[in-house]
Design a protein around this nucleic acid. Structure first.
Lengths: 345, 345
DNA sequence: CATTAGCACTCTGTTACTTCGAGTGCTAAA
DNA sequence: TTTAGCACTCGAAGTAACAGAGTGCTAATG
């Protein structure tokens, strides 16, 4: 693989991103940093097409990058400019001051991204990989009616109303909550499984059959706890770019919560994924640029941008990068962060 | 206003809904129940256009109904066919059996509507107009950390975590919950206002300043309680009909919760609203067909369809009507319905 | 007087044809 | 190996012609 060919590929991507038109050999040859003739470029472009990095919409049109082309560009070729101090200042302002609450912080970041990139911004809260159940509480609220309260080490609280067949006395409630806490405290929310609850129901049934609705309730709450929420902001921007299928866009926005998985990937740092690359992602020809933010050293969520594949990566990536880092540092500051030792004193 | 003109207007709407093309005088004259010549119809159509019920996309095209035309058609002219037993059976099946839980019931109804009408289905839970606060609970969960629990007569439960500046002893908590319950129990959720909470903060501050975060928390919870949720299902159907602005569709789906108001109208029964009629509704040229379902005699939510204005009202209205009635009767059956007297024993 | 038949006119959508230009691949020269 | 030149291809855009649907108007009819 020629060094010049890589240079030409990068130039094609840059030009295509800039103009949106298939780019021809002549346009490339006119670029400052390219010192070969159009004919040479034509030859190289033909080779790049052979190798699968470029394609022609039709004979006698310019070339556009393929997935492989973009991939190579992003992973190896692209040079990322530093954000200027002005830009950083602007982003800081859009994010809000240090006192902004966490949810608003994320919302502001998303708003900033949509505005600056003219794409849709997406956010997800991370799966609570490290939080554990720290407290269970059962509160009578009416005739045979009880509210279960489940609190995790990360400060998440869920509740649910349960109807039993008999009323419980104080001791029974004590026994139950103790039993549950003994079995669940310290267990990571992620590890909670239906089988565990089945076992507990079985074990409790020797004591009192009618407690099983409570266990079932706790089981449902633990599902709630694992639930991740995805938000989309500025989805309408995706309609203006016509390389995206509008149906798919709407379906994505409507069923957004089914796609939390894709924003959650093992390793951290900026990631770029293409819609058609991973089978899992809904919008064909789309591109997802996303990074994680952390809170007190732990992954707390992801923030990113969805746009067409033809998008200005060199502009967007620094934005996403800066914002997630800034958010991480704000969230991990001296603010009130829930922590295990504080919850269970 | 001629009787024949009304007949012609109805025929134009019917034909336009059926074919999607502007309808001309000849097409109308061929209909069975019309016994006048095309020329006569032309005269009447010109008159109807004068009166604002019809319009021409351009000279020498057929006529299409205006908002006013649709409005008149729906309010006065349209004849609604009864659902056949087969259709009713089909709807019943799609709804699920009597044991289906309430949320699923609504989801199924929405799914049925999207499938049968090829439009988007929308649902909203009603504002909790009649529910009142029935219980307040404060639970210590950590160092200076408390969970507030708010329970309403309709079985709605909300919680929130609060950090105080000092720890509270048992008596203080007792005092606080009593104070709150005394002031709030019996008050309709709808009536809760910021001023009320301000007063309470002021009153409590003589006793203990540091309780104000708790009151603030309850205030926020009461806002949560008033929060209505709107769901859209099958929104992508709206993209295929090209009289709707795709941007507006996406914006609507993305910000759906800002539109709960429009589905909530004073009187009950089937309602048809046009996007452009009421300034409040997002999608121009759209039509909203909606009705309320009830639970135990009280409004519990609304269910309906959003489509283009050119939609088969004679088909959709009976569907929405039947489904909401059926849901009401299922929900008001012998199932476990929360009721005030059961919650506060 | 309301209704109808007839007719000239208007406007759109479609098809066929042409032209234009950008871009290519190939060949031959440097 | 690179470059200049050239014939070729293909889509986009523009034009003309045409068919068809629908109208408004006028004059005739019961």
């Amino acid at each position: 693989m020629d060094d010049r060919k890589l240079k030409i590929l990068a130039a094609v991507v840059d030009e295509y991103v800039r103009t949106g038109e298939p780019v021809g050999s002549k346009a490339i040859s006119k670029l400052e940093h390219i010192n070969v003739s159009a004919a040479t470029i034509r030859n190289d472009m033909a080779a790049l097409e052979q190798m699968g990095y470029l394609e022609q919409p039709h004979t006698s049109a310019g070339r556009i990058p393929t997935f492989m082309g973009y991939r190579l560009y992003i992973d190896e070729l692209m040079t990322l400019p530093e954000l200027s101090d002005d830009e950083k200042l602007r982003l800081d302002e859009m994010l809000g001051d240090e006192n902004t609450n966490e949810e608003l912080l994320i919302q502001n970041a998303a708003a900033a991204l949509t505005e600056l990139t003219q794409c849709a911004a997406v956010t997800v809260n991370s799966a609570p990989r490290f939080s554990v159940i720290s407290k269970v509480e059962v509160i009578p609220t009416g005739k045979r009616l009880y509210v279960i309260l489940l609190i995790t080490s990360s400060g998440n609280i869920k509740n649910k109303s349960c109807r039993l067949e008999f009323d419980l006395n104080h001791e029974q409630i004590e026994f139950f909550t103790h039993y549950i806490e003994e079995n669940l405290s310290g267990v990571s929310v992620e590890e909670l499984s239906d089988e565990m609850f089945d076992k507990m129901v079985a074990a409790l049934s020797t004591y009192m059959v009618s407690l099983s609705p409570l266990v079932k309730g706790i089981c449902e709450l633990s599902e709630d706890l694992r639930h991740q929420e995805l938000t989309v902001r500025g989805g309408e921007k995706l309609l203006s770019c016509d390389d995206l299928d509008k149906m798919e866009v709407v379906r994505f926005i409507e069923h957004k919560n089914e796609f939390t998985g894709i924003l959650e990937d093992a390793f951290s740092g900026i990631q770029v994924k293409f819609g058609s690359e991973s089978g899992s992602f809904a919008i064909g020809n789309s591109s997802l640029i996303v990074s994680k933010y952390r809170k007190g050293g732990r992954e707390a969520g992801s923030l990113g941008v969805i746009g067409p594949m033809r998008v200005d990566y060199r502009k967007i990536i620094p934005y996403v990068d800066y914002l997630t880092q800034k958010i991480s540092s704000i969230m991990s500051g001296s603010d009130d962060d829930y922590d295990t030792d504080e919850i269970n004193p």
